[in-house]
């Protein structure tokens, strides 16, 4: 057997047998390819197409779901923030109220204390006044007795008594 690069030699004449053989072989090859390669491959390609389609659908669905969840979460955060703000405001208001209440109570208490002190002072003063007046009376009796001892005219006595009384009144 010799191998070289001679490639001439398409035979002259009509090769009817070759034509028939080529046709037969081609049809056999076509049938074999269809059975062993094309059909299974087409099957898997369709399967893949369906798989991809379903995956896309699932992805779309989950995207929508995620969006919904996001919206929900956003709304929840918003309401929570609103609630927190409300709580703080309420607390502030409550504190303010308590403050003013306490202040008012303290003011009322101090007023009351002041009134009580004033009342007491006035009572004390009246008491002192009465005491004084009694003492003045006894004193004037004493003075009168002393003056009488010193020989005092009635006019002078009167004058003295009045004077003392006046003085005692001015001292108030």
């Amino acid at each position: 057997m010799t191998t070289n690069a001679y490639a001439l030699g398409a035979g002259a004449g009509f090769n009817g047998g070759d034509i028939l053989f080529q046709l037969a072989m081609f049809i056999i090859l076509l049938a074999l390819l269809k059975k062993f390669a094309w059909a299974p491959l087409m099957g898997i390609m369709t399967q893949r197409e369906e798989h991809i389609a379903s995956e896309i659908e699932a992805a779309e669905k989950s995207r929508v779901e995620a969006n919904q969840l996001l919206e929900q979460t956003r709304a929840e955060v918003k309401s929570a923030r609103l609630e927190a703000q409300n709580t703080i405001e309420n607390a502030k208001k409550l504190g303010e109220e308590q403050k003013s209440e306490i202040l008012a109570a303290a003011r009322a208490e101090s007023e009351r204390l002041k009134e009580a002190a004033k009342l007491e002072i006035a009572q004390e003063r009246d008491q002192a006044m009465n005491l004084l007046r009694e003492q003045v009376a006894s004193l004037s009796v004493m003075i009168a007795s002393k003056v009488i001892e010193k020989d005092l005219s009635a006019a002078d006595q009167e004058k003295l008594i009045n004077q003392y009384i006046q003085e005692a009144g001015e001292e108030q």
Binding site: G9, G11, N15, G16, G17, D18, Q22, M25
Partner: peptide
């Protein structure tokens, strides 16, 4: 019918 077969062609087709 007399058919002409080229054995080389048949070999290469196969």
């Amino acid at each position: 019918v007399t058919l002409t077969f080229n054995l080389a062609n048949m070999l290469m087709i196969t």
